[in-house]
Design a protein around this nucleic acid. Structure first.
Length: 410
RNA sequence: GGAGAGGUACCGAAGCGGUCAAACGGGGCAGACUGUAAAUCUGCUGGCUAUUGCCUUCGGAGGUUCGAAUCCUCCCCUCUCCA
């Protein structure tokens, strides 16, 4: 082999190893990479995602950045939106059946995905595909033939199914279909590589088997660590609601990162830097040893993440806002304004106002909050929520984070 | 198709005729504390209401009873074993 090609293969593989947990078929891929480089052909690299929630979160970015690395190396990223599979519901890592999504929901999620991916990947130089493209053309007989490529025993070996079966939680037959479809996607796309989280290992390996059955090369599979969510224990996931969405407003991202527990923070340094955060390693080591400035490190990570998705200035602004509002207890300068009509001579009760501006879901909740000392008007704690406000403008605060400026007039 | 077990609030799970708006745990929210929206501690966690009580909840529909989440009937759903 041409030594220049060999060196390039080594260089690229080293890049690809970054932040990977497992790399199945690495040696095989080395050969194919050499061929591809010689022929000037890019590798086809698949990353699939279910449009099961409108937001992509920072956990996804670990693997999205890997896709970006492939792109930068001159290969072809394929971002596959699993619109067909979303209608099945990925059982991976789940302790219950995932509810299937409505068609419209899937479509609107899919659209926002592409926009969000564009923050990381150059989507103009990528293939964006939907698996309904080929799956909708599947005849029942095709499906049956597809399913003949796997055995029940293998499916039952899967940790999540095995657990559920043992616990007596229902496992529906359609959930078995998911890995088959995901595997077939690799066949349809003729993928050379598939990327995913470690929870996707089974599905992706099944793609290797299936591709061989269909007379193709088996794709290489690179798995990546799963980021823990803001709760610090469960993996970050859309359905658990412990995620930091990359399309969320700057202050939300900042706040959510700040609420991550100190221990989980270490993973964030390790997995989210994409090689650019080496300057944080010293701080990371110190915090890991229990003597560093965890808070400072967390602020810095929060700032960088906001900057990554909203621009450099937004990062500093979010940091500044956090220090003033959350730490300093100041009133933020972007308090939402509400205009309410004054009814009668007595003004309107706080109960009513809180409900109207959507701070509480019920009046009972407003009463409870007030009793707990969470309600204040113009900086003064109010424990009686039935108190009425007269005409004028009032600053209402509920809890630490909810502010509103309410103007009452005729 | 046969035989058992079970469906309770956001989730898990007690309760098995009145004292049940329903124990307990998780989650969420709030307060205190703190370098933090971490940790920890405390409280709250169906709706309406002058905190006085009223209204709606325990898979669904009926029924028994002064009174049902608790008993009966039918239906729907899940799990296990057998076929």
């Amino acid at each position: 082999m041409d030594p220049k090609i060999a060196a390039e293969v080594e260089r690229q593989l080293a890049e690809l190893d970054r932040s990977a947990v497992d790399f199945y078929g690495r040696d095989e891929l080395a050969g194919r990479l050499a061929d591809a480089l010689t022929a000037g052909r890019p590798l086809r690299v698949k990353l699939g995602m279910d449009p099961s929630a409108p937001d992509l979160h920072i956990g996804h970015t670990v693997v999205l950045h890997k896709l970006k690395i492939f792109q930068d190396l001159g290969h072809m990223p394929i971002f596959l939106v699993g619109d067909f599979t979303a209608a099945i519901g990925d059982p991976s890592g789940r302790s219950k059946t995932r509810p299937p999504l409505a068609r419209e929901q899937i479509e609107s999620n899919a659209r926002t995905y592409v926009d969000q991916v564009a923050k990381i990947l150059d989507v103009d130089r990528a293939e964006v595909r939907f698996n309904s493209e080929w799956m909708n053309a599947f005849a029942p007989a095709d499906f049956v033939r597809l399913c003949a490529h796997g055995t029940v025993a293998r499916l039952l070996e899967r940790d999540d199914f095995a657990k559920r079966y043992a616990e007596g939680t229902p496992v529906f037959v359609h959930e078995f279909l998911y890995p088959f479809v995901q595997a077939y996607d690799s066949v349809a796309l003729e993928a050379d590589v598939e990327l995913g989280g470690t929870d996707q290992t089974f599905n992706m390996l099944m793609g290797r088997d299936l591709q061989r059955d269909y007379g193709q090369h088996a794709q290489a599979v690179i798995t990546h660590p799963l980021l823990v969510g803001t709760d610090g224990s469960e993996k970050m996931s859309k359905s658990l609601g412990n995620y930091v969405g990359i399309a969320e407003p700057a202050e939300e991202i900042f706040g959510k990162v700040m609420s991550v527990s100190d221990v989980a923070l270490l993973d964030y340094v390790d997995y989210l830097g994409n090689g650019d955060w080496d300057d944080l390693l010293a701080a990371r080591t110190a915090v890991a040893a229990g003597e560093g400035d965890a808070m400072g490190l967390k602020k810095e990570i929060a700032r960088r993440l906001v900057a990554r998705y909203h621009g450099r200035d937004a990062g500093s602004e979010a940091l500044d806002r956090f220090e003033r509002v959350v730490q300093g207890g100041e009133v933020p300068d972007d308090v939402p304004e509400h205009q309410l009509a004054l009814e009668g001579q007595n003004g309107r009760s706080l109960l009513e106002i809180l409900e109207q501006i959507g701070f509480v879901g019920s009046r009972g909740e407003a009463r409870r909050m007030a009793k707990q000392g969470a309600l204040s008007v113009d900086g003064e704690r109010v424990e009686d929520p039935t108190r009425a406000l007269a005409a004028g403008t009032w600053l209402i605060r509920l809890g630490k984070r909810r502010f509103a400026r309410v103007t009452l007039r005729d």
